[in-house]
Simulated assay, not measured.
Amino acid sequence: MLARFTDSARRALIRAGTLALDAGRPALTPDLLLLALAEIRPFSLASFTVTAEDVREQVDLGDRRELLATLGIDLAEVHRRTRAGTSDPARWRLTRSRLNPLRVTLHGPLGSVPLAMHARKVVEVAMWRPGAVTGERLLWGLLADYSNGAGRILRAGGVDLRALVEETGMPTARTA
């Protein structure tokens, strides 16, 4: 499934998976995907004004840095020493279960993490049209389902959602 993703969109999805694994989350969720998009920025959208720091304030990452620091462990240094090559897209894959087609899992050198229902829907919306899955299309998937919380996080970060939807070229419902 990752073969259809552009390099930058693939890096964003992998970053979201890494965030989920680091946070000890049971699944990759849309808020982590939004944070990864804010960090990687696989697009050049003027109306995507939110920063990674803005999104990080809204997302619970279960940060263990403070706890480990009290033990004299620098988590950033541990990651630098142990994670060489783990973000290489060639070492990651996205699979759909044959027995349960609603189960999509991201597998990589750091572990495997299933996509939560709303995150799976993001990927399915991004893959809906033929062609490459871009960062903009991942953003479409996030914005297509208001119940996933991404719109709330973006709005809290000062993003004009209407302008963002328009700039991405996202298909919208037509009114008479």
Rank of each mutant, 00 (worst) to 15 (best):
V78S: 03
K121G: 00
H107W: 15
A84W: 00
W92V: 05
G111R: 07
P89W: 13
A69Y: 07
S87D: 14
A116F: 09
V113C: 08
L99D: 10
T95C: 04
V78T: 07
R81C: 05
T95L: 14
L143Q: 08
V59R: 11
L94A: 05
A76P: 02
T168G: 01
E77Q: 09
R93K: 11
V159G: 01
T168S: 02
A163N: 06
G135P: 01
E167P: 00
G85K: 13
E167T: 07
G157K: 08
W140M: 06
R83L: 01
T86L: 04
P114K: 08
V133D: 02
V159R: 00
W92S: 03
H107F: 12
L106E: 04
W128Y: 12
L110E: 15
G135K: 00
G149D: 12
M117F: 14
L142E: 05
S97I: 10
L68V: 00
L143F: 03
L67P: 02
V59Q: 12
W128I: 00
A119M: 14
D63R: 12
E66Q: 13
N148M: 12
S147H: 12
A116E: 07
E124Q: 14
R137G: 03
H118N: 13
T134F: 01
A119D: 05
G62D: 07
G141D: 11
P130Q: 15
T168Y: 01
V133C: 00
A156R: 15
R91H: 04
P114Y: 06
T95S: 10
A163V: 06
L164T: 05
K121A: 04
E167M: 08
K121V: 03
P101L: 13
V122G: 08
Q58W: 01
P101F: 15
A116G: 15
A116D: 13
R96Q: 14
T105A: 03
V159S: 02
I73L: 10
L115Q: 09
H79F: 09
A132S: 09
V159N: 02
E136C: 03
V59L: 11
R152M: 13
A69R: 15
A132V: 00
H107A: 06
R129E: 15
